[in-house]
């Protein structure tokens, strides 16, 4: 049960990463690998702010804004300086590695002695539900901190998911979707597709950095390496979500991404529990995303083949 709750919490934290990746990869069709850098940046910026005495709320916001800055840098490199999209992301991520080191001061920093958002909401839930080490959740005993994380992360993710959904229905959000869908069309309607892309990447990386910021606060340390492989992890959530919901409506896809992220974390938790070497995690993830990408195509081919076989057999039967 402990395993489940912690996987659930990780899934919720990484759901924001998934939503960011959803914006850049799916709405803008932009292969934005800035995620690796901005995720760590979110963690680093928040940690640095917490250490120097800022409140958890403002520090988290700071992480989010830092991510937006990183995302807009990638967008500006791509639009204004006409650098290939992937390369823009690589450049910013490379630069961010040094920046993150500077922000953190060294390669990893502990938050054990600092206030964090997760400590604040543990306090808050203590006030609401009483001061116990463990709580009874549907018959399971769950640690107070884990439960507080679960509660507040759920609220936050649901709130942000609905917020993103609502945003995509506004004039600005709709223009962003159109810019990703058909840039020529939105230009012909009097909006700058470049500005929309820059803003979209800013928003995407803001969410990704927020994810990093929350991770740092929940696990109580930040590490400059914490962003490595995040693009693929985010993509995994998006792809699992897509195959789960089987719809192209963005509202459903947003929900799918959140669920995909949680499922993905669960699978990893189970794999680790079954004796998977944590060092192999990234390899397994990459293979997994590869399979998730090609499986739908294989399944379709198989289905077609099966159908045509069936038709063939029916013909054959008729012939007899």
């Amino acid at each position: 049960m402990l395993l489940l709750i912690s996987a659930l919490n990780f899934g919720l934290v990484f759901a924001l990463l998934g939503l960011g990746v959803y914006i850049s990869f799916r709405i803008f069709h932009f292969a934005d690998i800035t995620a690796d850098g901005s995720f760590a940046l979110g963690g680093a910026a928040t940690t640095a702010m917490l250490i120097s005495g800022w409140s958890p709320l403002l520090s988290t916001l700071g992480g989010f804004l830092a991510g937006m800055l990183a995302g807009s840098s990638t967008g500006i490199l791509h639009t204004t300086f006409k650098i290939h999209g992937l390369l823009s992301g690589i450049l910013v991520t490379t630069a961010l590695y040094s920046i993150n080191l500077r922000v953190l001061g060294r390669s990893n920093v502990s938050l054990t002695d600092s206030p964090t958002l997760s400590k604040s909401w543990a306090e808050l839930s203590k006030i609401c539900f009483g001061d116990q080490q463990r709580h009874n959740l549907f018959g399971w005993m769950v640690g107070a901190q884990d439960l507080a994380n679960l509660l507040f992360l759920t609220i936050l993710v649901v709130f942000l998911g609905i917020g993103l959904f609502a945003f995509l229905k506004t004039n600005l959000g709709a223009a962003m979707r159109a810019a990703g869908d058909n840039a020529q069309m939105i230009r012909a309607l009097g909006a700058s597709d470049k500005v929309l892309l820059i803003f979209g990447l800013a928003l995407a990386n803001g969410l990704i950095a927020l994810s990093g910021s929350l991770l740092a606060q929940c696990q109580e340390f930040a590490d400059v390496q914490m962003g490595i492989g995040m693009v693929v992890w985010g993509l995994a959530s998006v792809i699992i979500g897509e195959s789960l919901v089987g719809s192209s409506r963005f509202g459903v896809l947003i929900a799918g991404t959140v669920i995909g992220s949680i499922l993905f974390r669960m699978m990893i938790a189970i794999a680790l529990r079954c004796g998977l070497n944590p060092n192999d995690l990234k390899l397994i993830t990459a293979v997994f995303v590869f399979l998730a990408l090609v499986a739908p195509r294989w399944l379709k081919a198989l289905k077609l083949k099966f159908n045509s076989d069936a038709v063939g057999e029916a013909d054959h039967a008729q012939g007899l």
Binding site: T170, N171, A174, A175
Partner: peptide, 27 residues
Amino acid sequence: GSAPTMTVAENLALAARRGMSRGLGWS
């Protein structure tokens, strides 16, 4: 001339904002 994954109404709503600011009002 249109954004394929968006609905007919959404596409026309984008055109209805031509020359205006695109803010946080419902499209």
